[in-house]
């Protein structure tokens, strides 16, 4: 992956690695902030049809290098107060199952 440019004001980057990179044919997308973490997968599905089932269902998510819980977008708590909100300038990443070594 090359150098990712800083997102424009009011937006954030989502980085794609491994299978997520292959599926989207992109290193990253830029989305408007703020966004409750529970809405993230739905926003990505709008850009890349099928990504939720084929890729995201087996992935973890980090925000600024910390793992976060992603509540189910269909449930009531998707935008509840307890869950993380992605802010402008945050670096979000989709983390497929790892395979180092």
């Amino acid at each position: 992956m090359g150098v990712i440019p800083k997102p424009p004001q009011g937006q954030f980057n989502v980085l794609y690695f491994a299978s997520a990179n292959s599926f989207t044919s992109k290193d990253y997308d830029t989305l408007p902030a703020p966004l409750p973490i529970g809405k993230l997968f739905d926003e990505l599905e709008k850009k890349h049809s099928g990504i939720k089932d084929k890729i995201l269902s087996s992935c973890l998510v980090t925000v600024n290098l910390n793992y976060v819980d992603v509540p189910n977008g269909d449930s009531e708590d998707a935008s509840s107060e307890s869950s993380v909100v992605i802010h402008a300038g945050d670096e979000v990443a989709i983390i497929p199952p790892v395979s180092s070594g």
């Binding site: 690695f17 491994a18 089932d53 087996s58 973890l60 497929p96 199952p97 395979s99 070594g101």
Partner: peptide
């Protein structure tokens, strides 16, 4: 560790390997 291995096979599409599904920290569909 957030490193990914892609295996390229003779005459077919490569695949992203997963070390092991279902370990803590790796959600299973």
């Amino acid at each position: 560790v957030e490193v990914w291995k892609r295996e390229e096979f003779q005459g077919e599409e490569g695949i992203w390997r997963a070390n092991r599904d279902g370990l803590p920290g790796q959600k299973i569909a």
